[in-house]
Nucleic acid binder design. Structure first.
Length: 646
RNA sequence: GCUGGCGUAGCUCAGCGGUAGAGCAUCUGAUUUGUAAUCAGAGGGUCGGGGGUUCGAAUCCCUUCGCCAGCUCCA
């Protein structure tokens, strides 16, 4: 009888019969893991637990705690969904059904849309199939037979998919009850493992994501190995909704959208405007400190300029339509670069002036298709914290380092700690895609790379993701709902200096082409503000809070004293409100809490006599009475240190 | 832009062919209040806009605008 050698993760070697399955190995070893494991890795490949082992191999087991294990788990959940849908709606045509970061989906083509009631029915059917503990069976099938099988059932999308993905003469399918899916696998042994799942939504999606292809109905869901984990996930969703800046912004009177004015256009209310002013004040001070010069450029400029810059060619679909003024076409600006370039080119530049760092809080307008605008995060008019650095090739590396450091400081100052850094470089196989000389690209990519390495930053290298005009570093930030938002971007530009024929006089007396670096740290003030609202759930740290302190007189008898306290704080530069309404103290506290005001100062008879204030923090509650001067010192300290805690 | 869902008072929502409702908010009055909602009264809506069906439309149909979830795209 043939035997093979299995090497377990702890180094132990087991002799087993050939064609023993990982599940059988597992059962001999450790019963607890036998229940948790959902897939095995043999010879570096993930395989089903009941896939026979043919040769000597290291073997380990994955549970849903491993990201790869969770992916398999969710992938199998998608199959369960499709199996249920096929039972209830045999006429549907199947698309694809992969796992996602948050769960899974499966795509179907069907004339009628799925209703919420349909989803409930599907969920019940899934539970039924799960309770029957349907096995996931892997079968190998000649490719042609598989194609015929699906063709008979008029599963056109599956056929298309097999023709594209099915390599070799044999393909694998997975059978779950009556449901047969062309699929590479691997899968969990049986549906009973999917203890907790929930269908979340149904949405349209183009087949293969290509606009113009038929619209599939995509059913989204999520699943977990236990109900507790599903509940936890649903709570997090709830929490994300609670922090949604689109809800909090208007509630806290920070900003609004006015349908009369048009979608994607932001109205900053006084409180939001104040926060923005504080943010910008910080930024402007940093610009001066770091050798940037602030400029302003016009919002409409001749179309000719946008032809020169190339935007009219490659960016037109994102630009508002042009307008005519005295027979000359004009264009609302979608970017700030050409304006800054005109300032650079206004006169001869010497190498002695470089690096020249021109910064602008530049408001731009971009045409975004109506379905994509989203609160503050995706809008049609926004302000970029933009700057363009013109420098000599030798200065590039230092400039890049300065930009990355500045970007991290700009995000950290506002309380963010989780970033994802991406380095986007060219695809060397497609040189025709990129403007500029190869040696420029090499130098630029080298500068970006060495900067990131120098700073000890973890980053993802994105080959082929560079823009045609230059490589770039992007910093992304993950928001409350786990969506990554691109904020900072630092880009080389080999294109515009060429197009505008930029030059400087070097030490040798000859003209040279400057290098141009384009960078934005927050990306847009609007987007950054939106992310900020969600990050703090509207409870801004005291240095940013539009109202830092509210004074609450206990009754009218203490109103005068409350007024004095408020005046005193206001005179010292704090942002204070006095709540002198004819309301009970409890009601005033409730309202102040809902407005997320960092500090409440309760002023009644006792405080008036003692010359104190009773301090209540929005996060720590009642802190008891203290002299006003003492509170003020503490408040000043927290503003100074930009403390997040109140 | 595409697919689907949703637009009723400032907000949250009920009403779903037969005279537009509730709670909160607002205003007025009473109360003079001690750490998350005091009581009473009043005002407030061309039911997103336009068109149609009907004796009669918030309710049914068409159209348009906006919002939401995705797809695609992006700071």
């Amino acid at each position: 009888m043939d035997t093979i050698k299995i090497t377990l993760p702890d180094g132990q070697v087991e002799q087993v019969r050939k064609r023993t399955t990982p599940l059988e190995v597992l059962k001999k070893l450790n019963t607890r893991l036998a229940e948790q494991a959902i897939v095995a890795r043999a010879n570096g490949e993930l395989i089903d637990l009941n896939q026979p082992l043919e040769r000597d191999t290291p073997l380990n087991f994955l549970t849903p705690d491993d990201p790869e294990g969770m992916f398999v788990f969710r992938h199998s959940s998608a199959h369960l969904l499709a199996a249920a849908v096929l039972e209830l709606f045999p006429e549907v045509k199947l698309g694809v059904g992969p796992p996602t970061d948050q769960g899974f989906f499966y795509e179907f083509y069907r004339e009628q849309p799925f209703t919420p009631e349909d989803l409930e029915k599907i969920e019940r059917k899934m539970a039924e199939l799960r309770d029957r503990d349907l096995p996931f069976e892997r079968r190998m099938m000649p490719r042609e037979e598989c194609l015929r099988f699906y063709a008979e059932q008029q599963q056109d999308f599956k056929c298309e998919f097999i023709r594209e993905k099915g390599v070799g003469n044999e393909v694998s399918v997975y059978v779950t009850g009556k449901f047969v899916d062309f699929c590479r696998g691997p899968h969990i042994p049986s549906a009973g493992r999917i203890k907790a799942f929930k269908l979340l939504s149904v949405a349209g999606a183009y087949w293969k994501g290509v606009e113009g292809n038929p619209q599939m109905q995509r059913i989204y869901g999520t699943s977990f190995p236990s109900q507790a984990e599903l509940d936890d996930f649903l709570h997090r969703l709830e929490e994300a909704r609670r922090r949604d800046h689109r809800k909090l912004g208007p509630e806290l009177d920070l900003f609004s959208l006015q349908p009369e004015a048009g979608p994607g256009l932001i109205f900053w209310h006084p409180k939001g405007g104040l926060v923005r002013t504080l943010m910008e004040d910080w930024l402007r001070a940093e610009y001066r400190r770091r050798g940037y010069q602030l400029v302003f450029t016009p919002h409409v400029m001749r179309q000719e300029l946008w032809k020169t810059s190339g935007h009219l060619n490659w960016y037109q679909e994102n630009m508002f339509p042009g307008m005519e003024v005295e027979k000359a076409p004009y264009q609302l600006k979608p970017m700030n670069c050409p304006g800054h370039i005109l300032i650079y080119r206004d006169r001869r530049r010497s190498y002695r002036e470089l690096p020249l760092r021109l910064a602008e809080l530049g408001t731009v307008y971009r045409y975004e298709r109506s379905g994509v605008v989203h609160g503050l995060l995706r809008v049609r008019g926004f302000t970029v914290d933009d700057a363009h650095i013109f420098c000599t090739p030798d200065q590039v590396e230092g400039e890049i380092r300065g930009c990355v450091q500045f970007a991290l400081d700009a995000l950290k100052t506002f309380g963010f700690e989780r970033f994802e850094v991406e380095l986007s470089v060219r695809d060397p196989a497609r040189p025709e895609h990129y403007a500029g000389k190869v040696e420029d690209w090499e130098r630029a990519e080298g500068a970006l790379l060495s900067t990131l390495n120098h700073m000890g930053l973890l980053f993802k290298r994105m080959q082929g993701e560079a823009v045609f005009y230059g490589p770039k570093i992007d910093v992304k930030l993950v928001d409350a709902i786990g969506r990554p938002w691109q904020l900072s971007t630092i880009q080389f530009d080999f294109n515009l200096p060429e197009r505008f024929d930029l030059k400087y006089t070097a030490a040798d007396g000859a003209f040279h082409r400057p290098v141009m670096v384009h960078r934005a740290l927050w990306g847009s003030v609007e987007r950054f503000f939106g992310v900020l609202i969600e990050h703090y759930a509207g409870a801004f740290p005291v240095w940013l809070a539009p109202v830092q302190v509210v004074v609450l007189p206990v009754s009218e008898k203490a109103a005068d004293y409350g007024g004095q306290v408020a005046d005193q704080l206001r005179a010292d530069g704090f942002r204070v409100e006095l709540d002198a309404r004819n309301e009970k103290l409890q009601a005033k506290i409730r309202d102040a809490q809902l407005q997320k005001i960092p500090y409440m100062l309760i002023c009644g008879q006792k405080e008036k006599e003692a010359g104190t204030v009773s301090v209540r923090s929005r996060s720590r509650g009642d802190l008891g009475p203290q002299p006003l001067a003492e509170f003020q010192r503490e408040l000043a300290r927290r503003v100074e240190t930009r403390a997040v805690e109140t």
